[in-house]
Simulated scan of single mutants.
Amino acid sequence: MTRRLLLAALLVVVCTACGGAPSTPTGAPSKAVTLGFSAWPGWFPWQVAQEKGLFAKNGVEVELKYFDSYTDSLTALATGNIDANSQTLNDTLASISGGAKQTVVLVNDNSTGNDQIIARSGISSVAGLKGKTVAAEQGTVDHYLLLLALRKAGLTQADITFKPLPTDAAAAAFKAGQVDAVGAFAPFTTTALELPGSAAVATSKDFPGAIPDHLVVSRTLASSRPEVVQGLVKTWFDTLAWIGANKAEARTIMAKRAGVSEQAYAEYDAGTTIFSLADNREAFSSGSLERQAKEIAAFLTESGLADAAPPLDGLLDPRFVQGVSS
């Protein structure tokens, strides 16, 4: 399972789709919409929504599609094979760079510790990574976190040996002692930390707001079927309320979907800050999301993860969180 985007591969797919490759047009005359999600604690509430019938209560027929590969979910949205997806702001910007037409309609969460740079025993800081081998999924948010951490320590990627691997393989390679450090996200941080003496030397908590996660929809869906998007957004907040009132049952559902024990799942809570309706409205209205998008876009370009800064027009659509009754 991977949570983050291999940019080069996605650009090829998006450009192919733009050139006329067969795909199912988003917003085609079908009552049901397909919502994608993958392995990340801030997205498992969608499983609760499905099992508790909360989509139907809000008048939307949803095919909830779980992707073992996060990258596959990004490709599916970019090519019109699903209508909506759970993905990061970084990866949304990368998709837009490739020509995709997408818009952010909801902030699920901010990563506040569940993305980590984990090093073996004997390496106690990011500075200690100089000359060492570090694995992460290339062009992904954990690659982005690694670059942020290196820059803060006065280093660049040229100061390390970077080993590009899918996140699950990277965590496994680190656990096996094949690399000195790894960039990974929960639940794969659990795997990496099974190496005796290993510890996180940098996390997303060190870079507040750098890794926001969202519900992202095609712009065609947002313009042609806004009532459906409104229903998805309303369902999210109803789901959070249900989880708050039924914590034990909700944790059982989400841990099962994650493939981890309930105890392990509980440990992810502090590393993912779920955004309330008030948090969402503030994020959209204050300009903080726009500022973060500009910072990420600039960093992607400066670090060579994108050839050009993506256009931000139409990226953020606040009307759906504004349309939810308090």
Rank of each mutant, 00 (worst) to 15 (best):
G80V: 01
R225V: 01
L10R: 05
V104M: 02
F162A: 00
D72L: 10
P208M: 01
L215M: 09
D307T: 14
V14P: 09
G323N: 09
K163Q: 06
Y265G: 10
A49G: 04
E267H: 12
N108K: 03
F188M: 15
L6W: 06
P166D: 00
F67K: 04
P45M: 07
W236Q: 04
S326N: 15
G271K: 02
E227D: 15
S204V: 05
L150V: 01
Q230Y: 00
P318H: 10
E51N: 11
A8D: 13
S30I: 08
L305S: 10
P310C: 05
S86K: 02
F299P: 00
P196N: 07
G197Y: 01
I274K: 08
P166L: 02
L6I: 13
A264K: 14
I82K: 06
A298H: 12
I253D: 10
G271T: 03
T191Y: 12
G19T: 06
Q102V: 15
P310W: 01
T191N: 13
L93A: 06
A297K: 05
A21S: 14
S303T: 10
V33N: 07
V14D: 05
G42P: 05
V14G: 08
T103G: 12
T273W: 02
A28E: 13
A298Q: 01
V14Y: 04
Q157P: 14
K57D: 09
S224C: 12
I253G: 09
P22F: 02
R4I: 11
P164C: 10
Q138W: 12
T203D: 01
T2C: 06
S124R: 13
A202M: 03
P45Y: 03
A127P: 13
V12H: 14
L300Y: 02
A39T: 14
Y268R: 14
Q157N: 05
S288N: 14
A9M: 14
S286F: 07
T190V: 15
V321E: 00
Y268A: 06
T71R: 09
R4G: 11
L89G: 13
L193T: 11
V201G: 08
T140I: 04
D180H: 09
E63T: 15
T220P: 07
L145V: 07
F174R: 08
Q50K: 15
L145S: 01
P196C: 12
S73N: 13
S38I: 01
A100K: 11
H143C: 03
Y66S: 03
P187Y: 05
L148C: 11
G244C: 13
G59D: 04
D307M: 15
E137P: 10
L315G: 00
F207E: 02
T103I: 07
A76R: 08
S73Y: 03
V60W: 00
N110M: 04
F275E: 04
P22W: 03
P166C: 08
A169W: 07
F185S: 13
P311C: 08
K175A: 09
Q178F: 08
A298R: 09
